[in-house]
């Protein structure tokens, strides 16, 4: 069981959260001409590192806020959690 410290609600079990993937991926700017490659990078391509990974979770059975979690993908250690608008 993972325990994730929601920055809004405090420490809760993994069962209250749903996963949202890599948080470092940036959507291309709206109304800007972009190449297929840029779109490809955003939609499909992922580093998926072994080790520290900054990722999105939603506290879906709690405050329903999206949050950022820095977690180790090998050991599952959670280093920091942030509000969605905060940077590491």
């Amino acid at each position: 069981m993972l325990y994730i410290k929601c920055p809004h609600c405090g420490l809760r079990s993994q069962n209250e959260f749903s996963y949202g993937g890599d948080a470092t991926v940036k959507r291309p700017e709206l109304n800007k001409e972009i190449s297929d490659q840029e779109w490809d990078n955003f939609v499909y391509l992922r580093k998926s590192p072994r080790g520290k990974h900054l990722e999105l979770w939603q506290h879906i059975s709690g405050c329903r806020q999206w949050i950022k979690v820095e977690r180790d993908t090998l050991t599952h250690e959670i280093f920091t959690t942030l509000k969605s608008n905060e940077e590491l």
């Binding site: 069981m1 993994q14 069962n15 749903s18 996963y19 990974h53 993908t73 090998l74």
Partner: peptide
Amino acid sequence: DGYNSYAQRGNLP
């Protein structure tokens, strides 16, 4: 399990 993992072992939920 539903989140990126290299752990080769699972989680109970």
